[in-house]
Nucleic acid binder design. Structure first.
Lengths: 248, 248
DNA sequence: ACGGTTATAATGTATATACATGTTTTCACG
DNA sequence: CGTGAAAACATGTATATACATTATAACCGT
């Protein structure tokens, strides 16, 4: 009620996180099913002996995380568990290999500067005849091929790339550290290995491969298109998901 | 500054969202590269003619979204674009089929109640001899097989499932609407079709298939394990990502 | 110089208050 | 008896203030 002024560290953590934790627990445990109305801001404030502002901030955070929906006059309600979204971490390949406790290496197999063909324009939104850099490189785990990377870099957006040899640094890492981007689109498929990729990766022709394609845009237009091809029987993507789980 | 008291709707949107937008623009455009220190709370407050609390809330939100890192005494800094996380939406299969403008149907091919074997316990954390429901069903788009679903349901956690026939409602949709969950783990692989799955899906043996496995936990333990097998040449997962992009 | 204490700068959390905004309920008037 | 204006309600946004926390900087005596 009267509210003993600010945090006196009575038990553990801040009031904010205590309230947040309690509400999340009620929601995630199913104790409060979707559609259930949670206490009003003023009631929460009374219950925890805090101001409405504090309760408001907690509820606002839950709403941003998608766990609840808020309606004026009506109150706040537990959301339906909407489409199952998973945070898919696509690691840096070097990190991926090292996570397997294997030595990492890569080999540049192709580096060509040319103008965009019609086929390239399917992958990246490019003007006709726009200059691009076409790279292919093979990532190795220990002695064995791990992943084949085929990449197009838009030289209109990233002119610095033309001066780079990509002999010492993989193009992915180089781009990440130099070029800002703000949107990426991924496409994940299972495809049979073509004769070419089978040779590069040292697998049987038509073997199942996991193919991940990524297109990236920056403020000044399309940046890069990349296709990673992994031997399917040796690789898996893993994604973990907790609703409302912010990146701590 | 004196700060003209609350929102007088001078231009557009709230002060909060204007500041947020401005900062995001600076960061995403690369204008402020990773490591760059952004203005202190008090400076932002002065600049926008608002109180420090307002600036603080904006910065706090950016920090939660992972765009910036904050250090006491030092200030707030643009984060390194860490591991590329993409929000991967795994749609409901029915929605997926309808998005292709095809008729949706499903057929239950197997429904068995049994106790967990050692192999089942690899998929789901189960006690030895725990009762489970073992389901297989085929999802159809138009007349053609679209996806094969193989599912284990933990009857210890979801006893209601035993009374359900799953003839009218697909097990995925049934579970979503009835059983609360709080953690899911996905595994995505490319695998060659086994003889069985090839027959079910009407594809060639050894054809590349996209396999998505999901394990789900609720408050009272493991809920379900499911494996979706899609003919690889006919299906792709698509994920779009914008850093700091909250679910509106 | 060195190492420890003190000051200071920046963020973190919380309060009380004020007014805006959008819904729902109520109630009075025709 | 309906309908439209007014009141009540719950959230949304913003302010000013206070004190806590913590990392860095400044100081200071030995």
């Amino acid at each position: 009620m009267s509210g003993e002024r600010h945090a006196s560290a009575e038990k553990e953590g801040t009031l904010h996180s205590r309230i947040l934790g309690d509400l999340e627990r009620h929601i995630l445990s199913g104790d409060w099913p979707p559609g259930h109305r949670l206490p009003f801001e003023v009631d929460l404030a009374t219950q925890y002996g805090c101001s409405r502002m504090t309760a408001n901030k907690v509820l606002t955070q839950l709403a941003r995380a998608g766990l609840i929906e808020r309606r004026k006059k009506s109150g706040s309600f537990v959301s339906q568990p909407v489409g199952q979204a998973a945070v898919l971490e696509i690691h840096d390949i070097e990190a991926e290999v090292r996570a397997l406790k294997l030595a990492y290496a890569f080999r540049l197999e192709k580096r060509a500067r040319r103008v965009a063909s019609a086929k390239d324009r399917l992958h990246l939104e490019l003007a006709e005849g726009a200059p691009i850099l076409d790279l292919t490189c093979l990532h190795l785990a220990g002695e064995r091929p791990f992943c084949l990377e085929q990449r197009l870099i838009n030289l209109a957006t990233v002119p610095e790339a033309e001066a780079e040899t990509f002999l010492d640094m993989a193009p992915g890492a180089w781009l990440i550290s130099r070029v800002p981007w703000n949107t990426a689109e991924h496409r994940i498929q299972a495809l049979a290995a073509t004769a070419e990729t089978a040779t590069s990766l040292g697998i049987a022709r038509n073997a199942a491969c996991l193919v991940i394609e990524r297109r990236t845009w920056g403020a000044s237009g399309p940046v890069t298109f990349v296709r990673f091809t992994y031997p399917g029987d040796r690789h898996a993507l893993v994604a973990r998901f907790q609703p409302g789980g912010e990146g701590a």
